[in-house]
Structures are given as structure tokens and as C-alpha cells.
Simulated scan of single mutants.
Amino acid sequence: MTNQSDSFEVILVGFPGLPQHLHGLVSAMMFLIYMTSLAANGSVIGLVTLNPRLHQPMYLLIANLAASDVLFDTITLPKLIARYWFGSSTIAFKVCVFQMFWIHHLGSLDSFLLLLMAIDRYVAISQPLRYGAIINNRTVIIACGFCWVFLAPSTKIFHAIEAFKIALCEVNNKINTLYCSHAAIAALSCGDAAHMKQVAFISAMVVLLVPLSLILFSYIMIITVIARSKSSANWQKAFYTCGTHLFLVALYYVLRIFVYIVTNIPVIVIKADVNAVLLFLYSIAPHVGSPFVYFLRTKEIRQTVRKVFQKLKVVISVF
């Protein structure tokens, strides 16, 4: 047993049980996914930043969500790629805790940003004439800044401090999953980590379920407002306005909540291999899919992309 966290190293297993001959293929797939995420989310950030027409509250929120996704993938995927590409599987414990903090910080941030999007959509539909007075770019920037700096990391700092206090075992230094999550670090403890796991689960449920409950409530209110209008045009407008957000909520919440609940039911045992795949599906895959949802379902972004390609064609034709 040791508390020398400065010199302690852990082994990142990745996908447990993955055959050696598939390591190259998996690393190539992870690299492709990372590059796709960088390109897609980076394009969203660039389009929103550089195009004045997209300097609107909803697009600022989308850009913040894209930035959060890029950071999450940058913190997790390069190490996972190196583990399978170069066989670099060790990671210093303090770096592992640093990774854990940012993973849960950014995961919490996504929930709060999706909640802000729901509030934006509710005000846009229920108070269209007062929308500009209630929600503007300055309000959104302040709200996003508060989420980034204060709200999202508030409980995660406590988890990071607690992680440094656990009794580490030299013989128990394997992270049997894709990255250093709170549960994975708790499993490294030589002592009883039940309390640490319980606190982490409650914290995760609060961060997930409270915003989701408010999001669902906002959509109940939206449906109520539209139902009172008795206009098919309003239904079409609401579907166009809220469709993208609903896709994002489904991508980020459904599988994540299912896995969190199932993995914490004592009578249900999920194999490490299956758990790693589910972790990938709910934590990394949405970051690749969400930018394409923006491009396919957001008219203004599609028009901006089309104009960019038209300008590129002109430039290429000149040369």
C-alpha cells in the first residue's frame, strides 16, 4: 500500500481482452475518429466565430458545445491512440487525476449547455417578441462563462482532491477502461472505496438528471404554448427550431443515463469489454455525430458552409 501519488503509475488497459492483432486497426480507427471530431467541431467553431450572421445566442451555445467536445476528445483519445499504436500504456497517477477532473468537468458542462439551449428554445417560442430583450449574445456569453469556470468544475475539484487521498496499491494499478474516470480511480484503492463510488454516482445523477428534468419541463411548456395556438404553422416552426436540440439531447443523455444506472445495480454485472464499448458510445461517439446534426438540420450553418465551398471553388479556379 502506498500514498506516493507523485511517483505512482497506472496502466491504461483501453478495451480489455482486445486481441493483439487488432491493436493497429483500433488505433487507426481512434485516430480517424479524433481527426473527424477535430475537423467537424473545429469547423463549427470557425463558422460561428468568423461569420457575423451566426453571432446569435443559439449558435454561440453550439460553438461552446463543440469546443467542449474537442477538449474532451483531446484529453482522452491521443493517449488511447498511443496505447494501441505505440504500446504506451502507462500514465502517471497525477496525470490520471488531471484527466479525470477534465473528463467529468466537460461532461457536466455538456449537460449545462444543453440546458441553456433548452431555455433559449423555450423563450424563442413562448416569448418571440421579447426574445431579444431576454436572451442576447451578452447574456449567453456570461451564462456560458459561468458554466465553464464555476458551475461545471465546482464538484469535480472535490473529487480530484479526494482521489489524491486514496490508498494506492502497487499490485492494483490497472485502469480497465478507456480513460481515467472517477470510478476507475476509485477501483485503484486498496481500502474500501464504496463511499467514494457512491458520492461519484450521486454527483453524476445530479449533473445528468437535474438538467435533463429541466430540459423535459421546458419542452412540456413549449408543447403547451403551441397547443394553445392551434396553428399547424407553429408546430412546423417549433419542430424546425427544436429538432436539432432534441437530437443532441438524445445523443448525449439516453445511453449515458442507461449505463450509469445499470452499472450501479448490484445484481447486474457488465463485462469489462462491454462496459468499455458502451463508454465509447456514450462519451466519444456523440462528439463526432453532433457536428453533422448541426450541418444537416441547421439552415444557417448549411448556407454558410455552401458559401465557403463556393468561395473555395472560385479561388481554386483562379489558380
Rank of each mutant, 00 (worst) to 15 (best):
L115S: 03
S181T: 15
K197D: 15
V318R: 15
S7L: 13
K271F: 11
V10M: 05
H182T: 12
D73H: 12
Y84E: 00
H21E: 12
S126N: 13
I91H: 08
V123N: 03
I223D: 09
A204F: 06
V199I: 11
I81L: 01
I125H: 05
L296F: 14
L80E: 02
R228G: 15
F8N: 03
G46P: 00
L278M: 14
R83V: 09
I220H: 11
V210M: 03
D273W: 15
C147Y: 01
G14Y: 00
M35P: 03
W102M: 06
I157G: 07
P128V: 02
N64Y: 13
I135D: 04
S232T: 14
P57Q: 05
H195D: 13
Y122E: 02
V140S: 06
A163D: 03
L214W: 03
S189V: 04
A167G: 08
H23Q: 04
A200L: 07
L80Y: 00
F217P: 06
C169Y: 08
S27V: 02
V13P: 07
L279F: 12
V97M: 05
L113R: 01
H105C: 12
K307V: 09
L209C: 12
K156Y: 13
A28G: 11
M205L: 02
R83E: 11
I222M: 00
A285Y: 05
S203K: 11
A204E: 08
G42Q: 05
S203F: 10
V259I: 08
L115W: 02
V206C: 14
L178F: 00
T304G: 00
K156Q: 13
T244Y: 10
P266T: 04
K311E: 15
S181C: 11
V259F: 07
H182Q: 11
G145R: 03
A183K: 09
W235H: 06
A160Y: 04
I157Y: 09
R83G: 12
I62D: 10
C169K: 13
K313S: 13
R121G: 01
I166G: 02
V207R: 07
T90G: 04
L18D: 03
T36E: 07
N136C: 04
L129G: 14
L12F: 05
Y122K: 06
